[in-house]
Design a protein around this nucleic acid. Sequence first.
DNA 1: TGTTAGCACTCATCGAGACAGAGTGCTAAC
DNA 2: GTTAGCACTCTGTCTCGATGAGTGCTAACA
Lengths: 346, 346
Amino acid sequence: MAEELNERSQNILEAIVEDYISSAEPVGSRAITKRHSFNLSPASVRNVMSDLEEMGFLCSPHTSAGRVPTEKGFHYYIDSLLQVRDLSKEEETRLRQNYRFQGMKMEDIMQEVGRVMSGLSNYTGLVMAPKFASTVFRQIEFVRLSHGRLLVIYVSETGLVQNKVIEGVPDLSSHELEQISNYLNHELTGLSIQDVREKIARELQTERSNYDRLQKQALSLSSTALQDEAGDLIFVSGTSLMLEQPEFSTPDQMKRIIKTLESKSTLIELLDQSQTAQGVQIFIGSQSQHVEIEGCSLVTSSFSNKKGAIGTLGVIGPVRMPYSEVIPIVDFTAQLVSRILEREAE
Amino acid sequence: MAEELNERSQNILEAIVEDYISSAEPVGSRAITKRHSFNLSPASVRNVMSDLEEMGFLCSPHTSAGRVPTEKGFHYYIDSLLQVRDLSKEEETRLRQNYRFQGMKMEDIMQEVGRVMSGLSNYTGLVMAPKFASTVFRQIEFVRLSHGRLLVIYVSETGLVQNKVIEGVPDLSSHELEQISNYLNHELTGLSIQDVREKIARELQTERSNYDRLQKQALSLSSTALQDEAGDLIFVSGTSLMLEQPEFSTPDQMKRIIKTLESKSTLIELLDQSQTAQGVQIFIGSQSQHVEIEGCSLVTSSFSNKKGAIGTLGVIGPVRMPYSEVIPIVDFTAQLVSRILEREAE
DNA sequence: TGTTAGCACTCATCGAGACAGAGTGCTAAC
DNA sequence: GTTAGCACTCTGTCTCGATGAGTGCTAACA
């Protein structure tokens, strides 16, 4: 990937990528010389293009079509040629105005973030809410349902609300439940779920005799309640925008894309991958092992509050994507969401 | 619609509809005589088909194709010819085994019901959870978020959990909040949201002087919390199954369908319509005013518990649908969900 | 040596025409 | 009332040739 290109080759590669991004069609030597004013003839451009093809940056669908950037070509473009300008103050304001989070709960915010990001970029928006396990305990409440069934409501520092039904618990009075939740809220506030689990496991093991029945009950209940990972919360918005892309215009491709976006498991894996890194990340097509998203590119960024509850958001679209526009949108949105989470956490 | 058909015409119409359901292609006179053993020649069948076409039950895409049932034809088939056998005990058991609701909360159950129903029928499943306003109050809890922001958690009799953030409320201590929720839970349990709203409005108006500050606070808070309709909860499963249908095989049709299923507003209207009726309902294509679902058929049924929280579920697919299989699935599922809601309610 | 004009070549796309196949409608016979 | 026979219609597919865009190569030029 560290291959050197002279300036002319770079310029031409850049021109080809950009023309291809806006047209979605193979670009020929003549088109290049027309649209960009290099002082070169088509023939010279052809020579360069031929070199670029040999190096694997371009390929031609067939002899008499123009050239199309390969994934390697896109990579080079993104790594070395792309200039992402920051958003101007006005643009930022404009973007910010699209978001209205007044009085929204976590899920709604995530959903809304996806919708707006999708609308701004014109690509399909993905948002993965912070994982349950990565959240910080704020509060737990119990609600009695029918006999032996209990609804547990768990609120994280960031305002993420999880509820879960647990069955086969001994019947407890409202008063007892209240005591239990008071006890737990007092003991656990501020700990990460990871810590909470460890703490509970530890205390349950020691079985200190000075615990009263209710305390034991409380520990056992919370253990059950926080036990297994709640399913990943992932929000996909603007699915149909994918279908507008010329690269996914055949019925078969449409089916493939829709199925992929529908099942979500692939998306979760992809978003998980980019979770660790800082700032905007770009995954191009087959770079990942997922065949399902062949021809797709993912622009993502993670968000978090200071306490580290991490989620990931981004957009997915064809490899041929106007990165210079999409990247700032994703970047800004991630920062914005981080700030909102901070605010939620006080 | 009350047109009379003699027995032969009925038999032939039935044969055509059923052949068309399984093949998705225009059916010709010869095919009919081959597959079903009427003692008739193709020519005779042709005469009947010609009559049926004149009456509007059939139409031919062009002169030299077979006949396709019109929507009117399907209507007649469903109203007069279709025999829906009940599920056998074994089939019921088999269906029931697909459902595992242990330890699931309301949303998950709805989601899961949709998934299973979609899987069983091989069509896209739709589930609309009972509307917030139609639920019965069981419990309300408050959680303090950052300064001036409050998370309200509301649980209905059926275990449906709604949460909502309200802003700009005076800062109250945990203790005060507890008192408030105790007060509200005591006052409101068992009332429908409709009743709750009215009651609160009434009490707020009278402003009885013997109310203390907290009680007023409680009323005002709950008023805000229960104020506006929470968005309809609708679950769509198996979207991509739609794309497998030959009637939606062109890119344009695919886009149309996906957009319709994505936006959900059309679906909500459709499901709302069928909410009132008892038992399984069938909407055929342009019967409704929604152009978006041209060529689609909807098989729905409502579910409810004794207290009347009503939701609707069903499947959507092409008009050419094996109703005799789909109807029992939808019917059974609706009954099953009703029973689960009863159980939740104790 | 790098650049360019010229030209032959390749290949996808499009429309016209031919053809096979399926199915109908009509007529005449049973 | 039913049916066999036959002409007719229409679609889908295939082939063929024309078109045009774009390339690669070669030879001339600065």
